[in-house]
Amino acid sequence: MKKNILITGCSSGIGYDTAHYLHQNGYKVYATARKEEDVKRLRSEGLDAYLLDVTSSSNIKKILDFITKDKELYAVFNNAGFGQPGAVEDITTDALKEQFETNFFGLHELTRQSLKIMRKQGYGRILQHSSVLGIISLRFRGAYNASKYAIEGLCDTLRLELMDTDIFVCTINTGPVRSDFRQNALKMFKKNVISKGSIFEREYNEELLESKEEKENDPFTKNSVVVIKNIVHALEAKKPQARYYNTLATHILGALKRVLTTSMLDKILIKI
């Protein structure tokens, strides 16, 4: 029997590429997206795709009930998420709540419901998509940083609570990967941040609003294949790693976080 996996946030980027890769390599993939047009597109490409809004507990239960009606649940990849740029003082509490609803609370709800199934069956894999920004922080990324730091704390706790089981929680720390993430983040910035008159107006214009195309020879921005390699290991290794660093940027910044003082690291991060 094929191992099955539920993947959230499959409309583009890492979720999209992972769903196709695993589908082509023997997995039974349940690819999900929040918009009906994305679900239709995924189905037209040969994927078993379903509508799933991770902020809806009832929607999550419905899809899990469907998957486990005749089979067990091998794995979940909590990939859905978005970025909300803007300085902390320019981000409203409502915008911060919106960031957490998808990036953290939705992830927690799917994890919580999945664990009930996995505890009953005695095994499972839960892959949580964090970020290099769950390890270090960058300015104008406060909402996103906070949501990813929250995931780190949740995963560290879950590992302790699941230590005597065959249910593994793996944190996927992804650095810059080519996707629609930056474009979608810019939309959220324009939606939720009033940049005109902000003390950071000039920086916003220079660093966020000006069009900057990704360079193919950029040594830090990679294609999603670097992430998929680690996802496969997390799914197939007898004892998967607790944490997977993806891209050179994640490895470098993760190492600097461990060896530098806070003030020394801040001097580097302010330049990024």
Rank of each mutant, 00 (worst) to 15 (best):
S224M: 03
D17Y: 05
K212F: 04
D90M: 03
N230H: 12
T221C: 11
T261A: 04
V169A: 09
G106R: 10
K62R: 13
A33R: 02
I268N: 05
I199H: 00
D94A: 03
L265F: 06
D164Q: 14
E36N: 05
L256D: 06
F66N: 01
Q113M: 15
K271W: 02
K35C: 03
G122T: 08
D94F: 01
K116H: 13
H23F: 09
I14Q: 00
T92D: 09
Q99N: 10
S58H: 06
E98D: 13
T247G: 03
L253V: 10
T247M: 04
Y245H: 10
S224K: 10
Y144F: 13
A95K: 08
S58I: 06
Y144L: 05
K40N: 08
R139N: 12
G254A: 11
Y204P: 14
A234Q: 05
L73W: 01
L115A: 02
N4A: 05
D38R: 09
N192G: 07
E210Y: 09
Q128D: 10
Q183R: 10
G122E: 02
L253T: 11
D94I: 11
I7A: 05
E45S: 09
V177D: 05
G134F: 00
S44C: 07
G153H: 06
A249E: 14
G81P: 07
M1N: 04
F104G: 01
S211H: 12
R139Y: 14
A146F: 03
E37T: 13
T247S: 11
D166H: 09
N59Y: 00
L127S: 13
L6C: 02
N103E: 06
